[in-house]
Design a protein around this nucleic acid. Structure first.
Lengths: 349, 349
DNA sequence: CTGAAAGCGCTAACAA
DNA sequence: TTGTTAGCGCTTTCAG
């Protein structure tokens, strides 16, 4: 009549109740529920399991963590969950960490240092076993002093002594250039940002120049457009291009720093009757979801978001087991997503 | 030489060390750090604070939670983080819960029941103070037995006894229809899914019929297209429309069940020379990011993702304080996002 | 206002 | 193989 309702959903049932019902000690129950395979006789094992079943007992991992110093929680700190680039990385991390028993907390910093430090605080309150992050500030000392294994996502050279995974921008740019070259383009323009602080952006410019040199093509400074990598930059780019004398004879293709720029530039140029894929070749970078929905669909260099996420997760897993192992860095190549904005000029020759 | 470095980042410093340094008891330190404003003299308060500062002490909220039965963690269970619709809701939840001291865990179920139950397990392991979720199964009993305050996101009628927030699909459909009507359209077609299980989808059809009736317009069953709400459905829709006899005379506008359908249909129709916003009006639903990047940009009915997220978070906050309060339900109206795919036919009259 | 002691639910020596 | 005894770091009576 009292307490014999197995469906009571209140989780008042702890290891203690299980022990009582099974007629064993708490430690024995503990041995059963902590998968460490502590030595328990087959007989008692069954008794305990039956009691657990009967009471609907659930292990309280938070309490367990207090003792073992593990939380089975990992923080993924990224600039913006709602941005597909980052959310897809987060998803990949989640997918590889959860089967290992970890829960993933996603924190959006919205590029704000203040929000970043709030997450660092959290991390220091012993909430997480590990952290995967993309920091605005790249305050390496801060990250190293977190007292928690950390993996960086990005491609900053500042981070010398810390695990890193990211995209190989040099290669990603080159692969796009190469594709333009193969399809018969010889007058390639580049649109990218020259934001001083974000030094990795100029990697695109470096790859561009290297490429021209390698192919023995002339470098025309007027074809290196400097714009912000957002929608505004795309419109600006269209304007700059159109402002160029004899532009149609000087450029046959446009390599854009990212897809947003490519898409807005493309839409802007159309207003002047210039159609991407017909009058001018355009190629973007990132492969955001919108890129396949534009008209015509955008050819672009895809950044391997999934691989990045998976690699970061695996690296963290390793680092959590062996905090003192050698620092690793992984740069993944971009992949060409061929759609309809690059003209095949070989046919025309 | 040993241990006298105040910057040692290992968080070995607990309440105990602080107490020693400040020359008080652990309880006193506890009173200081738990914002409950326990009575502490101004003098000791200062001593303790100084000690905390000096040692770089951080409160271990996990340990505290063991005692207080609070984890300050909230689970947001959604079908897919990488889908903008859901990630924006998650972001809003995060933005309103974090200032209250909660950490938000985002869990993606990918529409799988199995993954859902894994999260229910987690919730039962006393990890979370509350849960905000969109369930595939809508197993209300299960959710109620979680033993944790829960708020549902969606618009399922099944959920009678549980807090819910969602979009008012009936109204959202109507507002789009109304806009078409205002701009002079009288031959409106609707494309939606008739998936039996997802009964809320047929809300669109209901709103459609109601609207026609209200305006005294005839209902032509051939103009109610039934397609899946994905890219494939969009192409299918284009095919069906084109297959209709005299379609150009029978329909002047197309209301699509969601943006994906609208965008793919629009791109497909263009192949036959039919341009949205010129030859045919098209309107979507959701306002996904890609919608503003299409050419022409898509007019659509925006679902108030942010408001939904904020409301869900606030509701959960309330429910966590008062678990027995009356069940609440909030449906938010859709908003028109006017862009370029709807023709203003009034001019032509 | 402050301290001592008990305990949240679990794990980890150490005995038995 | 099992039970006993201490804690993990914090909060919370209950005295003083």
């Amino acid at each position: 009549m009292y307490g014999n309702d197995p469906n009571m959903s209140k989780q008042k049932i702890s290891i203690h109740e299980v022990a009582r019902l099974a007629g064993v000690s708490k430690s024995t129950v503990s041995r059963v529920i902590s998968d460490k395979g502590g030595s328990v006789s087959h007989e008692t094992l069954e008794k305990v399991q039956k009691a657990i079943e009967q009471l609907g007992y659930r292990k309280n991992i938070v309490a367990a963590g207090l003792r073992t110093q593990k939380t089975y929680m990992v923080l993924v700190m990224i600039p913006d969950v709602a941005n597909p680039f980052w959310s897809e990385i987060a998803r990949a991390v989640q997918d590889t960490l959860e089967p290992e028993g970890y829960s993933v907390v996603i924190g959006s910093t919205y590029w704000s240092e203040e929000r970043e430090s709030r997450y660092y605080e959290l991390a220091q309150m012993a909430r997480f076993d590990g952290v995967i992050l993309n920091s605005v500030t790249d305050n390496i000392d801060l990250i190293k002093n977190l007292g928690v294994p950390a993996v960086l996502i990005g491609e900053r050279s500042a981070a010398q002594n810390i695990d890193t995974v990211g995209t190989d921008t040099l290669q990603a740019t080159k692969i796009g250039m190469e594709y333009l070259y193969e399809t018969g383009h010889r007058k390639i323009a580049l649109a990218t940002s020259d934001h001083g602080s974000e030094r990795y952006l100029s990697l695109r410019a470096r790859a561009y120049k290297d490429f021209l040199h390698e192919k023995g093509l002339p470098f025309d400074p007027a074809l290196l457009f400097s714009v912000n990598l957002d929608a505004e930059g795309g419109r600006e780019l269209a304007k700059q291009l159109l402002g160029l004398q004899n532009w149609a004879e000087r450029v046959d293709s446009l390599f854009c720093g990212n897809d947003i720029v490519a898409i807005t530039a493309m839409n802007e140029l159309r207003k002047y009757g210039i159609i991407a894929g017909i009058d001018l070749s355009i190629i973007g970078m990132d492969d955001v979801p919108a890129s396949s929905q534009t008209y015509p669909p955008l050819t672009t260099v895809r950044k391997p978001r999934e691989r990045i996420g998976v690699a970061a997760a695996q690296l963290l897993l390793r680092r959590m087991q062996d905090p003192l192992g050698a620092v690793e860095k992984h740069l993944f190549p971009g992949e060409l997503a061929i759609r309809d904005t690059v003209i095949d000029r070989r046919k025309k020759r």
